[in-house]
Every structure is written in structure tokens, then in C-alpha cells.
Simulated scan of single mutants.
Amino acid sequence: MATQLKPSESLEGQVSKEEWQARLDLAACYRIFDHMGWGESIYNHISLKVPGEEDTFLINPFGLLYDEVTASNLVKIDVEGNNVGGSPYMVNKAGFTQHAHFHKHLGGRADAICHVHTTATMAVCSHKEGLRPISFYACNFQDQIGYHDFEGVTVRAEEGDRLVQNLGNHTILMLRNHGPVVMDGTIQGMFVKMWALQRACEIQVATLSQGEPQVVPQEVIDVHQRDLSVMASQGGAGVFDFEAWKRRIDKIDDSWRH
């Protein structure tokens, strides 16, 4: 069995500057997710393509909690599952199978990917109608989400083609009765998308508990999405959000930088 919970030697200076920055960003993202309460014991994953390399990405070591992830103990693997970075840690097959297929086939729109099991997102994934247009945040995502029927734990490579097919041209795939997969060309964009999706799902769960919701009409959704795209360009697609949360986790524990 691979080594677990062993402090790793810092890789700073041993990998390219681009890879080290990617490691820092991904480790920070794991700590932010942990702070938000989006972790799921030692399970679930956030992955990030290694800049300047073909078909390699970084992912969390299997067996570590999100608050134990650091820049140096992230595992570097290729899309075939080979450990190409010399890490002593193993990778959860369920994480590799799903994430690798998206990284391999979707190009730049899936350079950063997360899969979570938060209560609110799983609840909406399990709702017959999925995410409904009943809040500000939910309107962000109307007609921009794919849905994939539950087939059991995602460890079989042959399911990958169906995942990509059901995703279509979108960047969010709601795995029914399971949880969402959120992706973007940057880790900052993926994070802010996940944040807004989580809020949309929390609000839907709360609203439906009160009875029949007020649904936003399509013409209003269209205007909302048009204006939102203009506003998003001012914040660098999540850059301001991501940097703000990095400052927060640094105040709590900056060991992720190791």
C-alpha cells in the first residue's frame, strides 16, 4: 500500500515554475473547499492540468483529508493513470477514471475539474427536475448544465464516453443521485462556478421546503445571463474571489504552501 500521511519533501525548485504555481493553486483550492465544508472525508477530487505538458494533471493523494493536501504531496499522473511525478501516494480509481476522461477529451474547457458530494448539490442532483430557475444564482446556470443518469460508482472507463456525451457543450454535469462535476479552463473560474452552484442548490433546497417556488421567466433569465457575462469580465472569471479566499486560508493555516 502506498505511503500515507507522511510529510513530503518540498518540490519547490524541483519542478518547473509553471507546475509549482499550479501545485500552489490546487493545494489552496483543496484548503478552501475544506474551509467551505465541501470535503467528503478522504473522497472526491479536484484536478488541474499541468501547464505546458500534454495529458498530465495533478490530483489529491488518496487517504489524505483536504486539509492535509499541500503543493508538494499532490500526485502528478497522466490520463492513462500512470504516476509520472514519483509520488509515493496512490490515487483513488474513481477520481482518476472520471477526471482523466474529461481532461483527455475536452481540451481547455476542462483544465480544472472538481467533483463534490455536498448535501445541497447532491439533493438537487437527486431532484427529478434538477436545478430550477428560482434564485439569482440558479438563473446563472439555466440551459448550461448537462445531466447524467446514475450508473453506480464511477470506476469503469466505458462510462466515460456517456459522461462526455451528456455533458455536451456545457461545463457542469449533474450526476443524478450522485453529485456535480464542475469544470473550467482555469482553477479560479472553476472555483467561482462551484461557489455559485453550491449557493443555488442551498437556496433551492430551502425554497422547496416552503412549498411551490416563484419561477423566474425565461426572458428574464436571458437578460440576467447577458448582463452577468459583462460583470464577470470585470472580476477576471473568479480571480478576485479565489485570491480573497486564499488570504482567508493563509490566516488559518499556510502549510498548504509546502
Rank of each mutant, 00 (worst) to 15 (best):
K128W: 00
G130A: 11
N140F: 10
N60E: 14
M122A: 10
R23N: 13
G63V: 05
A28W: 00
N73S: 03
L131I: 11
H117E: 06
F102P: 06
A110Q: 05
A112D: 02
P61K: 06
A27W: 08
V79W: 05
G146H: 02
V75I: 11
V124Y: 04
H99T: 12
H99C: 12
H115K: 07
H99G: 15
D149E: 14
L58E: 10
H115E: 08
A138G: 15
K93L: 11
V91R: 02
L131N: 11
H105L: 13
Q21S: 11
Y30A: 10
G39P: 01
H99A: 15
L24D: 10
N92Q: 10
H115F: 04
Y137I: 06
A120S: 15
V84K: 11
G85A: 05
V116R: 01
A112G: 08
I42E: 03
V124D: 00
D78T: 08
M90Y: 01
F136P: 01
V124N: 00
Q21G: 00
H148L: 10
E68Q: 14
H127N: 09
P133M: 05
G86N: 06
H117C: 07
I145D: 06
E80C: 15
I32R: 04
H117R: 05
S41V: 05
G108Y: 01
W38Q: 07
F96I: 12
G107C: 03
G85N: 04
A94E: 14
H115W: 03
S72N: 13
G95E: 13
N83T: 11
C114M: 15
Y43N: 12
D143P: 00
D25A: 07
F33A: 14
S126A: 13
G85D: 06
V75F: 09
L58M: 09
L131S: 11
N82L: 08
Q21E: 15
